[in-house]
């Protein structure tokens, strides 16, 4: 992806008008506010949009890569896996995307495939019927990956605990990086836990 990004910083988007090639190659031009710089009216009034005043220059590949990482490198992609939950945790995960919590605004996104995910958010008392699918999803998630137990059931087994049909806590079947307790945990609390977790990760373990 950084190759693509670097190409854009050097040559602009091929779909834009030629005039927009004079846009600065600063990585900050990727922020939403300045992303519509192809409008000639905007580029003619640079004093109002200071970012656009920067002199265009080519970025060295590693520099472009670093800037890219700075902006989007802390973004997080999540794959939710229900391993026998009652749907309560899922409802609160859904609530994270509503305009109040605006999860995507924090750079966090739920994705459809574990192959696109940095983190697995696992709920439920790990029903034995779900173990194979769960382990496969974990295996399919690229490293460095994080497995998070969400809700009382996944953290400790909850009311259901261990039985002929359930394993109980998620840590019984796979190493767990973080537990978010609650029945179900409220969306604000989930968000707080995830952001704190990311902040405290050593740089070497940040999502690639």
């Amino acid at each position: 992806m950084w190759k693509l990004f670097n190409q854009i910083t050097r040559h602009g988007l091929c779909t834009e008008k030629p005039g927009s090639l004079t846009r600065p190659s600063s990585a900050t031009s990727l922020t939403p506010d300045t992303n519509h710089g192809s409008d000639p009216g905007l580029t003619q009034t640079p004093s109002e949009i200071p970012v656009l005043c920067a002199a265009p220059r080519d970025l060295a590949p590693h520099e472009a890569h670093q800037r890219l990482l700075k902006i989007v490198g802390r973004a997080l992609t999540i794959r939710a896996v229900d391993a026998g939950s009652c749907n309560g945790c899922e409802l609160e995960m859904h609530a994270l995307s509503n305009p109040y919590y605006n999860l995507e605004g924090a750079g966090i996104r739920f994705v459809a495939s574990p192959r696109h995910a940095d983190l697995l958010l696992v709920t439920g008392p790990v029903a034995r019927n779900m173990v194979q699918a769960l382990l496969r999803a974990i295996e399919a998630t690229p490293r460095p990956r994080y497995v998070v137990a969400l809700g009382e059931c996944a953290c400790s087994g909850g009311l259901f605990g261990e039985s002929y049909a359930t394993h109980g806590a998620l840590s019984e079947v796979t190493p767990v990086d973080l537990c978010i307790p609650g029945c179900p945990p409220e969306p604000g609390f989930i968000l707080q836990c995830l952001l704190t977790f990311l902040e405290r990760l050593p740089a070497s373990r940040l999502p690639a």
Binding site: G84, G124, P125, A127, L159, F160, S163, A165
Partner: peptide, 22 residues
């Protein structure tokens, strides 16, 4: 059937008056 949790068996292990939690 993927989320079968053996709820009925769990109920029988608990006092009836706490069954509403389950």
């Amino acid at each position: 059937g993927y989320t079968h949790k053996g709820a009925a068996a769990r109920w029988r292990q608990r006092p009836a008056l706490l069954g509403h939690e389950l």
